[in-house]
């Protein structure tokens, strides 16, 4: 009897483990304006145009205000069982990983294979960026804080939650106390909106971006026709039909296209799919890999390669494996 109970419990635990959707990673990043205003930026000449970029490392090393705000926000998010990725630690990890990759060698002197793309991808990144801007302002002898927090989906570029406002002016409170007050004041509203986004995600599918491109070695374009049961259909339309069949409620938008590329936005992919009778979490890589498999079948027999840009964006490049 005990064995049966134990087996039932372990089966239930397995089911709950496999029934979880992919959790997006979240990271707080100071806004460009904040970094530039505090002198933490890099300016370079980009083909005659002077370009200024934020220097996050310098900001995190020199600015105690932003560290205080991020720390407070991290504490609140951890309390909600949604710990944030730490920007400072991510930057440190990226440079550490880079150094270690260069130094590791095998017994026969082989080093770790790394393409320029792998190097490019080794940066601090997250699925949802919390773009944070705080300013301590003065009005006469009083100080007050302006707080702006936007959650941006790193793949769709959409603002999925936000909260902003100016705090109550005070002549006695220290700036760090005002900053703490601003975080406490806005976080519940912000998390409420983030929760609405997640609820929408579970109800209508995760919104992602899919790009279909062509290798220049491919001997076809999206206008190439293939024989199907419904007559000859162009490759572009075959892909569009597959998207309509596989997106949640057929929701997607072909925002741009030519003979050499198709750009699908607002693609709603299911959160879960069945594999070997179990629920598995779906991400864009799995979704696009299914499209790749569809195109590899007869009558199309098309080779393609999946390139992953993260949890919410993947490319399918047609023409080669």
């Amino acid at each position: 009897m005990k064995k049966i109970i134990l087996l039932t419990m372990s089966a239930l635990m397995c089911a709950s483990t496999f029934g979880q959707a992919k959790k997006p990673t979240i990271m707080v990043v100071p806004s460009d304006r904040y970094c530039v205003e505090r002198g933490c930026s890099i300016t370079y000449n980009d083909n005659g145009t002077e370009t200024t970029l934020p220097d996050y490392k310098k900001t995190m090393q020199n600015d105690s205000d932003i560290r205080l705000v991020i720390s407070k926000m991290s504490g609140i998010m951890s309390d909600r069982n949604f710990p944030l990725k730490d920007l400072e630690q991510e930057l440190r990890n990226a440079s550490q990983e880079s150094a270690e990759t260069k130094l590791i060698s095998g017994a026969d002197g082989g080093s770790i294979a790394e393409s320029p793309i792998d190097v490019l991808k080794r940066t601090a990144k997250a699925d949802i960026i919390l773009d944070l801007d705080v300013t301590v302002n003065k009005r006469g002898p009083k100080k007050y804080v302006t707080f702006i927090l936007n959650a941006i989906d790193a793949y769709t570029g959409k603002n999925i939650a936000s909260s902003s406002g100016a705090g109550r002016p005070s002549s006695s409170a220290a700036p760090d106390l005002l900053l703490e007050e601003a975080v406490l004041s806005h976080m519940d509203e912000f998390i409420g909106r983030l929760q609405n986004h997640f609820d929408d995600m579970f109800a209508n599918g995760r919104e992602v971006k899919v790009m279909i491109k062509m290798f220049n070695s491919a001997d076809m374009t999206f206008s190439e026709t293939f024989p199907t049961e419904d007559g000859d259909i162009e490759l572009g339309d075959i892909i569009e039909d597959w998207m309509a069949d596989n997106c949640v409620s057929g929701r997607f938008s072909l925002s741009d296209a030519s003979d050499n590329f198709q750009k699908y936005e607002q693609v709603r992919i299911p959160m879960m799919y069945k594999r070997n009778g179990r629920d598995r979490a779906m991400d864009t890589k799995t979704f696009v890999t299914n499209l790749k498999k569809h195109l590899a079948e007869a009558p199309y027999l098309i080779d393609s390669k999946v390139y992953v840009r993260g949890l919410g964006e993947a490319w399918l490049i047609i023409g080669e494996n």
């Binding site: 406002g165 100016a166 109550r168 004041s185 609820d199």
Partner: peptide
């Protein structure tokens, strides 16, 4: 129902716990 924002904007809206 949640709490409304403070009159001078110093406190943001607090959402309802049971949505």
């Amino acid at each position: 129902r949640g709490f409304p924002a403070g009159a001078d904007g110093s406190v943001a809206t607090t959402p309802a716990i049971v949505k």
